[in-house]
Structures are given as C-alpha cells and as structure tokens.
Amino acid sequence: MKPLLELRHIRIELPTRRGTLLAVDDVSFTIGEGEVLGVVGESGAGKSITAAAIIGLLEPPLRLAGGEILLDGARIDNLPPDAFRRIRGKQIGAIFQDPLTSLNPLYTIGRQLVETIRTHLPLGDKAATARAVELLQEVGIPGAAERFNAYPHQFSGGMRQRVVIALALAANPRLIVADEPTTALDVSTQAQIIALLKRLCRDHGTAVMLVTHDMGVIAETADRVAVMYAGRVAEIGPVRQVVKHPQHPYTVGLMGSIPSIGDTLERLPQIDGAMPRLGSIPPGCAFNPRCPKVMERCRVDRPDLLKAHATEAACWLHASISPGEAARG
C-alpha cells in the first residue's frame, strides 16, 4: 500500500549564536490512507516541531534543513508558499491545542467555516453555508443552525474545539495533523473530543497524525504509534505492541512510569534524570545516560531503527536479535 504521507530523513535545525542545534534529527515515518498515527514524547522531544513542518508552519528561526516530505508520493516540502497554502486546508487539516488560536475572535464561526469551504471547494455561498451547518451538526454542536452566527467566545472550550475540528474537516482533507488537541480541555470533555475525532476520521477515511504527551489518548485512538526522544524516533510500531510490549528501554520506562488505577505499587518505576536539552544531547544513543541496559556501544554508535519483535526500536539491544537487520537504514 502506498503511504499517504511519507517523511524521509527529516532534519530540523535551530540556528543560535552558539551554533546550530538539531531539534529533529533524521526522522522518517509514514502514515497510510485512513490511518491514525500517534506521535508521543515528552516536551522538547520534537514531536510538535515535526507536525509543524508537515503543515509548513515551522516558526522561524526553526528551519527544515534536510529530508523530504511526500504527500501521495509528491514532495511538498519544497513547494512555494502559495502552493503550500492551497495544500494545507485542502489536503491537510490542522487542529491545535488551544482552540482560541485557531479561531478568529472577530468573525462568527459560520463565516469562518464558509470562508474555508469556499477557498478550497468549488461551492457557491448557499451550498457552502449548507455544508457548514452540516459540518457543525456532524461535530455535535447542538442547535447548529442557530449557533451558526455566534462568535467563538460564546462557546465553551469543548464546543470551540468541535468548531476547530469542523474547520479542519471543512475541505474534506485526507490528513489531519492534530497537535495536543485535548490537552487544554477538562477530562470529561477530553473523552468526548477523542471519541468524536475517532468517529469522524473513520467515517471520512481521513488519516490523522495525533501528537500528544498523553499515552492514554494514544492507546485509545491510534493504530500505530511513534515514540520520540530528543529529536529522534525511539520506537515505532502498532499501538498494541508498543503499549503492551515496548522494546526500547525508554518506552519501557515511559510506560512503567504512568500510574494506573488498580496498581498496588508503593513507588512508581521511574527513569532517573531528564531528557537532555537540545544543546547537550550525548553522543551515541541519546538515551544512554538514563538507560538501565546501557552497553559500551550505546555511548559511541547511534542506533537507527531496528526490527524488534513486532515493533521497530532504535536500540542496540535488538542488533543481537537480528544481526542482518543492523546494517539497514
């Protein structure tokens, strides 16, 4: 199956006066048609920056310094800004953490929806309005027709995020990039938004790149999951495998440190230390100073993704399992 979105060796630099830092270093993954890929990691792991690069909204001075982004097999990372803007919205929708930043406070939500629809679809005013109301109904806004002329501030946080989802879906995109879509919401609202996103994408066959720090959201929503650490993918695989049988020591530690209802642990298993800052990523495997299974090789050689049971993990532990695979990548 041809992937819908493909990232090849993406490299994102942050130039500073003390030299150029690598915010994202050689990240490759694919998202299939209609697939939900969860991207999880701690703050500073590079997950949001990767998402921003895909929708062409990298904030300067961050810059895409290498690699290719392909949508349907065609490169989009080297398109001129105008052409890219057409793709964003039409082919790729975006949902951000704070719904207020995605909505213009001065326009009614109806107007914003109609505008987005008409920019990307060949519809007249009437047809666009009808589609906008339909979308609002679909995302579960009660009394959609009456609230069509309401302003963003007249909605609650959860309702606003529903409007943002309607906006992202307006042009029937094939991919939605959602960056922490539920982080700003209350837990009971969060569950509703996740369920809605899941249902809509299933119905429309829309693929989703779901960026979050919340493993619970990933476990409930994603088909596959990529775990990022210090600007690289540490592990990627089917969500069930990664959650239940993680292969990278970092993923193991991460999963273990999440408290869960019903456990009888007095202390949570913890990974000591913290993720290195951009300027001080150690040589070899970035996780080596915190890794309980560190070997000599980890301090010098940087592992690429290696086949590890049902997932792929960037860890030398798995080089011994399948020596033939080690040369790959």
Partner: peptide, 24 residues
Amino acid sequence: RLLLDTVPDLAMTGRERVAVRGEV
C-alpha cells in the same frame, strides 16, 4: 462514575466508553 469512565484505557481492553453528556 462519569470521571472514572473518562480515564483512558491504557490496559487496552477495548472497552467502549459510555458516552459522556455535556460539559461543566
């Protein structure tokens, strides 16, 4: 009960969540 229902299912039991109504 509603709050307990919203706890993400990390154990991946495949439980269907009860639909939660409304917001605070």
